[in-house]
Structures are given as C-alpha cells and as structure tokens.
Write a protein that binds this DNA or RNA. Structure first.
Length: 699
DNA sequence: GCGCAGATAGTTTTT
DNA sequence: CTATCTGCGC
C-alpha cells in the first residue's frame, strides 16, 4: 500500500515523555502508559532538565515575552514546555491557546510533543501555521468582507495562470511584465497590507503602475470567483479584524494566550495580526532569532523581532544562547560568519560540548567532481556506522541538488529530495481537486476551466470563451453562467451536451458528498472511468501511467480520511510540503530554507560559490546579510561534521562559469578548517591521505 | 474542437 | 534541461 503523503495529528499516538534535555531524568515512572488527565499534570515536569534561562521562559507569567533563541538552544522545548506549564500550573484551558508556527512540519512536531506530554487535551489546541489559523478565523466571517464562506484557496500556479490572463486582457505585453514579477509585487504589497487602490497611488514608474492595475483587476476577479491566494489569507484576516470590532473582540476573548515561533520570519501582515489578537491581555510569547531571518524575500521584516520590546512595552526578554547541538568548532565558524552582519541581535552561541573535529572545505574541479566527492564522503560515513538519515545535503537552490542526487542514486546510496514534486501539485491530483472545488464553490473559474473538459466533453476553448463572455455581459460568476447555459444561443450542440453532463456530474458529486463524504464524491467524478482512461492514455509510458493511477488512489485514500469536501480542499491548499516520514533510511537533500529547525550529525553544503551562495543578485546590503544568515542557518544545522564545497567550474544555465569561492568560506577562521584544505578523506581516512599528498607533490 | 510537434521561456529561497 | 505554450493540420 502506498504511503500516504499526509498524516493527521499524532494526538492519538501513544506518547513518549517530552524529554527535557540533559539527562536528568529520574526513574520516576513512565507516564507513557496512560496519558495524564489535566488534573494529574505536575507542573514540575515541565521544568525538568532545563537550564535557568529556559526555565525562566517557561514560568514567565502574564505580559509580553520575547525569547531570543539561538540555533540549537532548545527553543521548541521551551515553547512546548511553556504551554504545558501554563496548563498544569496556571490551569489554562488548552482550547484557548493559540500557537503559531511557520511550517506545517513544525506544527506537526509541536502537536506531537504536546500530545505526548499532555495527552488527549492537546488535540483541542490551535497549533497551526499562520495561514491555516487565518483560514480558520476568516471562514466563519468571510461574508463580512465580501467573500463567500465557501471561498477556496488558490495554489501558486493557479494565481499565475490568472495573472497571465489579466495581463493579456488588459492589453499588456507579458514579455515586458513578467507574471513572476507581477506576482512578487502583489505579494509584497499584500504582505505589507497595501491594497490595490493604495498600490496604484503609491507608484510612479510606468511598469509599476501597470502592475498596480493588474493587481486591482486580479483582485476583482479573485473575489468574483470566490478565491483567495495565500497572501489574502493574512491580508483579509487582518482587514476583517481591523474593520469589524465585534469579530476582533470575539477572537481576542477566544484566546487567552498566543505563542509564535520563528517570529523573525513574520511580515507586516502577520505581526499586525498578532498585535490585534493580543491587544487586550497582551499575553504573547514570541520566539525567534534575528540571525535566522531568511524570508526577507517574502516580505518578512526582521524589525518585528528586533523592535519587539518597543512594540510591546514591558516586554521581558530572555536570551537562550547555550547551544546543545553542535561542536565548538561548528559554533565558532557560525559565529565568525554571522559577526560580519551589522544588524543583528546581541548574542553569541556557546557550548561546552567540546571542540569536535575540523570543518572540511573541498575545492572540486566541477559540479560532477563535487557530487562524486560528496558521495564518497557519505559512503565513508555510512561505512563507519552512520545512518543515511544522519546525513543531509543543504543547497542554496534546488537546481544544485540535482546532480548530487543523481550521483547518490548511481552509487546506490539511498536518498530523498525534500520538496521535489509536491503531491498536491501533481496534475491528476489537481484535476480531481478542481472537481472538489467546483462542488464546494461553483464560482471558482480557474477550477472550472481546469476540469470542465477533463475528461473530454467537447467543451473546448471557444465554448469556454462564450461562457465567460456571457458571464461578463450579465455580471455573473462562471457558476451562474453554467447554470444559465441554455440562454447562450451560439453554443454548439455538442458543447451544450458536454456542459449538461458536467453540471449534472457536479450535482451528483455534491449529493454523493452529502451522503457519503468526499471519497463518494470522487467516486462519482471518476464514475465511468473516462478520466482514468484518459490519464493512462496520455502517459508517456507504463511507468508514468502507473504512477498517475497511484496518485489518484492515494488521493482517494486521503479524501476518505476527511469528513467533508471543504476539509479536503482546505487541507490540500495549505499543506504544501510533502510530509513523508523521515525514518532515517535516506540521505536527505533539501534547500537551506527547508532545513530550518532541523539538525543532522553531518551536513554538506555544496556550491559555496560567489553567484550561487551568495546569489548573484544579493551581493550587497540587506540582501547580502540575508544570504549570510542563510549560511549561518546552514552551518548551525550540523551537530558534528560540516562539509563545505565549491567547484572551480560550474555549468549554470548551460553556460560554463568559473566562479570564485564564496566569501562566506573566507569568513571562517582558517584554524577551524581542515589544515590541508583538501578532501576530508585526507585527514579522516588514512588511505586517501597519501594519494592527496602524492598529487600535491606531482608524483 | 483535438492532437501533435516544435518553440519557448524560465530558475532563489516558500506558506 | 524541462514543463508549458503556440500554431498548425486534421
């Protein structure tokens, strides 16, 4: 049976004790056997094994609390233990705690830990990403801001498709106004809480003002079809709370305390949301590290955390700078690199874990040589007893990972690229999702266009165009136009029949969903097998056909796990990362961004070259500092071994380049680096040392 | 309205 | 290099 890509909360799993670090755990009986009821919780449990600073953060009472938590300083422990302590010691109602994380993965991990220390009550807590929390708060009141409550959330590529349409329809040249650029501009505007109107006012140059007009039209069409994009979730929720004091009051009273993880990565919209929610009681605990702010490109504002105490007067600030993760050498390197940034928090990570071994820096001939070297090193580590899951390759950009993965595959080293092809981005899954969306929200024009003729129903582009222009001339949504299709006279009869069949199918799927849930609705959609036949026919080979069929099966399995179509659709929109379990059996390849919050015994960072890392567009000012923070994040993922590499020659965009080694490499003190500046194999495994020496001597 | 082939543009990082 | 788009013939 194929592994399901998602998993719901681990609340029902038998729990382990939330292990406080630093092995001071007595033999005081295993609570694992029966998760304790709330009454039975002993607050002291949440302080066990914590250092003084961590303890202080856990027991802090009312009022704003900022925990500046360096990498590997036990911040997740502090956050979860604080929640446990609030419940156990202060009798706080789990149902009235809002904990916000940045990624689904982090949310899941926190839920898991809470479930194991608190038992079933943990399931009542709101532990979610900003985007999920917003969707949840927004939906019941969506009509207040002119959105149907059945609004659906658009994926990135749907947004782009819509933007392309808008760009064309307004008569702009897509070559001069790239969709990507426009999307970035709109996204930045929304994240700074700038609406279309203000955006038009703010611009002066021609290109930006064209984009502002596109923004306005894009927004209008989104509304008309009952859609929101990711950024709208934040923007609209803030608007809702700002403009509707009764709703604001409701949510302010709903939550007794709010906790936010990774606060350095919040943007203006997110911090505004938090400020609104806690304005009454000011019970807010934010955790973060300015040095790990790596989402500036997504409008994150480090200022949110750097100026936290000014925004919330009376803030208690606690710095966690004792690192429990890495060796002294790795920390020294990280500290040395980040010290080159101007704007940063007051802190320096330290450890008493010992120096550890030196950092290995390898200069490779080219990308292939680099990949071979990494595979060699990984192989050696495995032979010495490391598990594949102890090793991670962290890349600045996804493209860098490809040749490395290929090499690992060639060598038979099990590996997995995290975030490769997300499940919900697969074509067949998107097709089926479009059907579900249409059942929930018939006005969703993009979904309509996606599935109306899949499988073929003789409703081609020109028929869709007629339907759209009919809709436009009567100010109807696409769903209303569909329902009044008989009033359109110039539709070919085949298309007419196709639309009839389509509308009937949606109705049938809708009733099936009411009776038997989302899986039943999908059964109706898949009904006569036409879709599957087409899917298989379109596949290049048998392998692809099977892969696609499996996707459909998996999607059915996911659907049958949910009680309503709405739930499936929302989950699919919000869960983006692929959630396969890491069972430690594979070397992981991922972007540095994706690695935040994780740790590995051995970390490789390839392509440490000017132009790639730092990226060629980010070589000065604030952008360079963000690149440097990224390097800091990468380095601090490593527990024991750190392997940095660069190549003298690299093919980028099919061009051969000869990049300089990254300045970040030169910011690491040379005494921390393997003395020979040669393959790790040299010092670590005697065999290769002679070969290297001989090569150097020209023998 | 459909399907194929060739062109083509796009590549930082993600909820 | 590769997913997506355009244009052409059917």
């Amino acid at each position: 049976m194929p592994e399901r890509p998602t998993e719901r909360t681990g609340a029902r799993r038998p729990g382990r004790v939330a292990a406080p670090r630093a092995g001071g755990e007595g033999p005081s009986g295993p609570p694992a056997a029966s998760p304790p009821g709330r009454r039975a919780l002993d607050p002291a449990r949440f302080l066990e094994g914590l250092n003084p600073a961590q303890r202080e953060a856990v027991v802090h009472g009312d009022g704003p609390l900022l925990v500046v938590a360096g990498a590997g300083s036990g911040k997740t422990t502090v956050l979860t233990n604080r929640i446990g302590y609030l419940i156990a010691e202060r009798g706080m109602d789990p149902d009235r705690i809002l904990a916000i994380t940045f990624t689904n993965k982090a949310a899941r991990e926190m839920k898991r830990r809470l479930a194991s220390s608190l038992g079933p009550v943990a399931a009542d807590m709101w532990v979610s990403t900003f985007h999920s929390a917003c969707a949840r708060m927004l939906r019941p009141y969506a009509d207040r801001i002119g959105l149907p409550r059945s609004f659906t959330i658009l994926q990135e590529d749907d947004c782009r498709r819509l933007l392309r349409d808008v760009t064309d329809d307004l008569g702009f040249d897509a070559k001069q106004l790239s969709v990507g650029g426009t999307k970035a501009l709109i996204s930045a505007a929304k994240n700074r809480l700038v609406g279309p109107r203000q955006s038009v006012v703010e611009t002066n140059d021609a290109r930006a003002s064209a984009r502002a007009r596109i923004y306005a039209e894009y927004q209008q069409r989104m509304r008309r079809s009952g859609n929101v994009d990711f950024d709208d979730l934040l923007f609209d929720t803030v608007t809702l709370l700002r403009d509707h004091s009764d709703v604001l009051a409701h949510y302010q009273q709903r939550f007794d305390t709010v906790l936010v993880d990774e606060y350095q990565d919040t943007n203006r919209a997110q911090s505004a949301l938090v400020e609104l929610l806690v304005a009454g009681h000011r019970n807010l605990c934010c955790v973060g590290d300015g040095d790990q702010s790596i989402y500036g490109f997504r409008a994150a504002d480090v200022g949110n955390i750097l100026h936290f105490a000014e925004t919330f007067p009376g803030t208690r600030t606690i710095v966690l700078d004792r690192n429990y993760r890495s060796t002294g050498t790795i920390l020294d390197a990280a500290n040395a690199v980040i010290a080159n940034n101007d704007l940063r928090p007051e802190k320096n990570l330290w450890t008493d874990a010992g120096v550890g071994r030196q950092i290995c820096v390898r200069e490779a001939d080219d990308g292939d040589d680099e990949a071979a070297w990494i595979a060699d090193q990984a192989d050696t580590l495995l032979k010495k007893g490391a598990k594949p899951g102890d090793i991670a390759v962290l890349c600045r950009a996804k493209a860098v990972a490809r040749p490395i993965e290929a090499e690992l595959v060639r060598r038979g080293i099990p590996s997995r690229t995290v975030g490769g092809i997300p499940f919900f981005e697969r074509r067949e899954v998107k097709d089926l999702l479009a059907y579900l969306r249409m059942v929930v929200n018939r006005d969703d024009e993009l979904s309509f266009r996606r599935c109306v003729n899949v499988p073929k129903r003789a409703v081609g582009d020109s028929s869709i165009k007629k339907l759209r222009s009919f809709a436009r001339s009567y100010a109807l949504s696409i769903g209303q136009a569909l329902d009044r299709r008989h009033e359109i006279d110039d539709l070919p009869s085949q298309a007419r029949e196709g639309l009839d069949a389509f509308a009937d199918l949606l109705d049938a799927a809708g009733s099936a969903a009411v009776a038997g849930g989302p899986a039943a609705a999908l059964d109706v959609v898949l009904g006569d097998g036409a879709y599957l036949r087409e899917l298989v026919a379109a596949a290049r080979d048998a392998e692809e056909a099977q892969y696609r069929e499996e996707s459909v099966e998996q999607f059915l399995a996911i659907a049958s796990d949910h009680s309503s179509i709405e739930e499936v659709v929302e989950m699919a929109s919000l869960v983006t990362a692929d959630d396969e379990d890491d069972d430690g059996s594979r070397v992981l390849l991922m972007t540095i961004h994706a690695s935040k919050g994780l740790e590995f015994p051995h970390v490789f960072v390839p392509a440490m070259e000017e132009g790639i890392f730092p990226d060629r567009r980010c070589t000065e000012g604030a952008e360079l500092e963000e690149e440097r923070r990224l390097a800091y994040v990468a380095i601090t993922r490593a527990r024991r071994g750190l392997y940095l590499s660069h190549a003298r020659q690299r093919r980028v965009l099919d061009q051969v380049r000869r990049p300089e080694r990254s300045r970040f490499l030169d910011e690491i003190p040379t005494d921390l680096v393997d003395a020979m500046d040669q393959p790790m194999a040299a010092s670590e495994h005697g065999v290769d040392r002679f070969a290297t020496l001989k090569a150097q001597l020209g023998l």
